[in-house]
Nucleic acid binder design. Structure first.
Lengths: 339, 339
DNA sequence: CTGAAAGCGCTAACAA
DNA sequence: TTGTTAGCGCTTTCAG
């Protein structure tokens, strides 16, 4: 129902008696317009609150200065920081960000991709590497400029800015083992269709394999909710041999588990160690505060934006590698005991 | 650099030998096209991965099925839940959501409004009531359909779906007073340009005024960060008379204060009570868990979406009131002592 | 430095 | 049921 009264270039043109071309020029490259004309135009534009019509512009220019990002969820703070940084960089380059969320569902992700492209997104930021062939083919077929974040692989055909989940999983597990733990268990996110969750577990398995004294007593998958993690914890505690450390695939899982230990009267870390992954705000707030793996969210967002802007500006040079690997760091706080 | 190979209606038209109009029809109202033609078209569309060009469509239809939302920050979980709910409703009506963030800055908000409208947003969701005359005039002048959330006022000229911050501020303060506290202090968010923060404080003042036995020892403003809240806490604790309860304008502030009490060796709630506002995840996780005011985020998001879709569909009827007031609830957990 | 005019891809009358 | 056609608002040659 809008458009009833939208001011168009032509309206302004009529009012101040110049051609639409001149006004367009004045808006896009002011220096190409004579000083007095420019002044007049700028005043009119200001007074009328003129905004260029996006559709018209998109049509004429064949690009939109818009980038889409699809994250699995907005519900917890997981992706918020990275997205904010991503957005900040884009804004300062005059690019608008469209955000979609997929709810961790590959089909929804595909639909969102279509929607955002249809909305005119010039490029995309996607989370993680794994997606159905259908989606990959689609991106490929239309040669959609895109960058993957929250993951890293040398083999990626796409531009990628992130960290190696497997390596990080291995690092935290080794750290736990180095503290003297041998009986380990894992609470992982749902791995199906989620390479981050999957690879973190693989990394943990790598570490255990490399340290024959340690054993993996069990892996429980849980949705990213406190309740679900708590259930997983109880399940793991009920195994014949009780683990001394539980490595969690995310902070939300770790905190869910930790909260349940409180109500179960289990002392962390004295009786049980718990580690997280992500280092979201939550991790600083629990008692004891959570030992976890810090992901360089902000950095990732910033760099991903730069890489994508770069691809958009220069085109994806065939030989060019757009892969940036960032490091994660283990943040030692209070939930991991030295045995 | 896209568009090199975008498939257009015309491409398809040529290939299968029908007019662009028929294809357009087939996409927008399939029943208006004969079965066999439809099949052929649908196959071609599928095969070629055709996506309608948003700009062209926007231009021809003069609307975009896109709605914009501008929230103060994506950085903490404050608005995430509401936004997710908002988005869910929109998606199921085939409307795309554009998200912008203003960083609590009225000027940035204004710029974002322009950007989103320029992007073709048919309507907007904005947080809070207070904004510069310039912004209000702009919305008015262009008669932009919009809904305000996170606030409520009978007097609002705009559609509004939210809760009365002042009333809620009063409610939590009265609750604290009813627990026997008389010496109160407040850690508020930055009130300038933020009516939610402002009104919460006003509500607290209302309660104190209505209960002459209680006194307000101080108000400290803090940015929404732990560190900043911690500083505010120390400031308040250093006043000649020490408060027994600190009412905070948000959970982030309350948790920041609470964490500092830990390092200060002050026992909460025995030596000091603290209350929050929002009931974000954080509040369930601290020790003790935070007594706070729950905001019906999801409900607010859902209803705001419905109101806005309704306005868009029917036009803003002059006499019609689009105001929905939701209730907040006090969640009693462990940081408020009975004296 | 400015204007005229040709589209960009799509939809919506209107005709056939 | 389908095709023809005239724009939607903007940018961009190309002339002047």
């Amino acid at each position: 129902m809008r458009g009833t009264s939208r001011t168009s270039l032509e309206d302004i043109a009529k009012i101040i008696g110049v051609s639409t071309a001149t006004i367009s020029r004045c808006i896009n490259s002011p220096h190409k317009v004579a000083e007095p004309t420019r002044k007049r135009i700028q005043k009119a534009v200001e007074d009328l609150g003129y905004m260029p019509h996006f559709g018209g512009r998109a049509l004429a220019r064949n690009r939109t200065n818009t980038i889409g990002a699809i994250i699995p969820t907005m519900d917890n703070a997981m992706f918020a920081g990275g997205l904010q940084a991503f957005q900040d960089v884009l804004s300062s380059s005059g690019v608008t960000l469209l955000v979609g969320s997929s709810n961790y569902d590959p089909n929804q992700e595909f639909e969102q991709i279509r929607a955002l492209l249809s909305q005119g997104a010039d490029g995309l930021m996607l989370i993680g590497e794994e997606r159905p062939a259908k989606t990959r083919k689609f991106l490929d077929q239309h040669s959609i400029p895109h960058v993957l974040a929250w993951c890293y692989s040398d083999a990626s055909a796409s531009a990628v800015v992130g960290f190696d989940n497997r390596k990080s999983g291995r690092a935290i597990a080794e750290h736990v083992i180095n503290q003297g733990h041998t009986k380990l268990a894992v609470i992982a996110g749902i791995r199906h269709g989620n390479d981050r969750a999957e690879n973190r577990v693989k990394g943990i398995e790598d570490a255990i394999e490399a340290n024959p004294s340690s054993i993996l007593l069990g892996i429980a998958e849980a949705k990213y909710s406190f309740e679900s993690a708590a259930t997983a914890l109880e399940y793991l505690l009920n195994s014949p041999t009780r683990p001394t450390a539980i490595i969690c695939g995310s902070d939300v899982l770790a905190v869910g588990a930790l909260l349940r230990t409180h109500s179960l009267g289990i002392k962390v870390p004295d009786e049980l160690s718990i580690t997280g992954f992500d280092d979201i705000t939550l991790a600083q707030v629990t008692s004891p505060r959570l030992t976890t793996v810090r992901i360089p969210q902000k950095e990732m967002g910033r760099q991903a934006a730069n890489v994508l802007l770069n691809i958009l500006a220069e085109g994806q040079k065939p030989g060019q590698l757009n892969r940036i690997e960032l490091e994660t760091t283990i943040i030692d706080r209070g939930t991991l005991a030295r045995l």
